[in-house]
C-alpha cells in the first residue's frame, strides 16, 4: 500500500518530530511511505481568510502532487478536513478538476482515523509512563468525526492513563489567523482550555493538530506552567518526541 505523507506546513516548520513519528507509525503498520517533495501547504489559510483564488490554486497543486497514491495521510485533522471537505467545494464549478478533487478527498485521511479505520492497527510502538488528557481539535472532531480514534489508539500505549478534561471538545481559541488578528481574545479562550486541562491533573495534554498545540503550549508557558507536557498524538503513539527520545511524563529534564 503506497501512502503519501502530507506533513503539513506547520509540522514542517515547527515540529518535524511529528512528521517522523507519523512516518514511523505508518511504516510499522506496513505502508510504503512516500513524502512528495514539492508539497507546501493545503491552502486552508487562504480559504479561511476569504482568498478563494489562492485557495483554489493551492488545491490544484496538492491534487497534482498527491495523485497516484493509494492514500494520503496527514497528522492533522484541520488539513485533512480541508482537503476532504473544502477541495470539492472550491472546485465545484471546474469540470476538469472536480472529479480529481473528489477522488483525492476520498483517499485522504487524518492519521488516527487512518490507523484505526483503514489499517485497523491494534499495536503501537509508543510507551508512556503517566497520564494524558486529550484535546479534540475542532476541524477533525466536527468536520471528520474524529473522537474515538485517537482515544482507542492511546488506550494501546503501555503505561498511559487517559484522564478526560471538562470541555475537551471546546475550541482552544487558535483559529489560524484569528490567533494573531484577535490575540488577546484568542489567548483568553486558550486560558480557559488550560484551566480545564490542568484540572484534569494529567501530566500531558495530547492533541492531533499542531496549531492547537502551539496555542495551548504557548499559553501554559506564559502562565508559568513549565511542567505540563504538550504532545502530538503521533509522538505519543510512536514513542518519538522532539528530543528524539520516548515522550516522558515528567517536566523539564
Amino acid at each position: 500500500m503506497r501512502v503519501a505523507l502530507f506533513v503539513t506546513c506547520l509540522v514542517d516548520l515547527m515540529r518535524p518530530s511529528i512528521g517522523f513519528a507519523t512516518a514511523r507509525l505508518l511504516e510499522e503498520a506496513g505502508c510504503e511511505l512516500v513524502v512528495p517533495e514539492t508539497q507546501t501547504c493545503c491552502g486552508q489559510p487562504a480559504y479561511s481568510s476569504g482568498n478563494r483564488a489562492a485557495a483554489r490554486q493551492l488545491a490544484k497543486k496538492v491534487i497534482g502532487e498527491f495523485a497516484g497514491f493509494d492514500y494520503v495521510v496527514a497528522p492533522s485533522g484541520s488539513c485533512a478536513e480541508h482537503i476532504r471537505n473544502a477541495y470539492p467545494l472550491l472546485l465545484a464549478d471546474e469540470a476538469d478538476w472536480l472529479p480529481r478533487a473528489q477522488e483525492l478527498a476520498a483517499r485522504t485521511f487524518e492519521l488516527t482515523d487512518f490507523l484505526v479505520n483503514v489499517l485497523h492497527v491494534d499495536k503501537v510502538p509508543g510507551r508512556f509512563a503517566g497520564s494524558v488528557t486529550y484535546h479534540d481539535s475542532c476541524s477533525g472532531l466536527r468536520g471528520l468525526g474524529i473522537r474515538e480514534q485517537p482515544r482507542a489508539l492511546l488506550a494501546q500505549v503501555p503505561g498511559l492513563e487517559l484522564r478526560e478534561m471538562a470541555g475537551a471538545e471546546e475550541c482552544c481559541g487558535f483559529g489560524g489567523a484569528f490567533s494573531v488578528k484577535f490575540g488577546e481574545l484568542s489567548a483568553a479562550i486558550a486560558a480557559r482550555k488550560c484551566g480545564n486541562l490542568r484540572a484534569s491533573g494529567a501530566d500531558a495534554v495530547v492533541g492531533g493538530d499542531l496549531g492547537c498545540l502551539l496555542n495551548i503550549e504557548g499559553r501554559l508557558r506564559r502562565e508559568g506552567d513549565l511542567k505540563t507536557r504538550v504532545l502530538h498524538v503521533a509522538e505519543v503513539l510512536a514513542g518519538v518526541d522532539g528530543d528524539g527520545e520516548a515522550p516522558h511524563a515528567g517536566g523539564a529534564n
Binding site: R15, E37, V180, L214, E217
Partner: peptide
C-alpha cells in the same frame, strides 16, 4: 520559546510562541 514576536505581536500578547525544533521536516527527511 519566544516571549515577544515582533512579526505577530498579537500572538505573544497573551502567550509565548514555542520555538521550532531546528531544521524543517523536509530538510531532515
Amino acid at each position: 520559546r519566544i516571549r515577544v514576536f515582533a512579526l505577530a505581536p498579537q500572538w505573544t500578547a497573551g502567550r509565548d510562541l514555542p520555538a521550532p525544533q531546528g531544521k524543517t521536516f523536509r530538510e531532515r527527511w
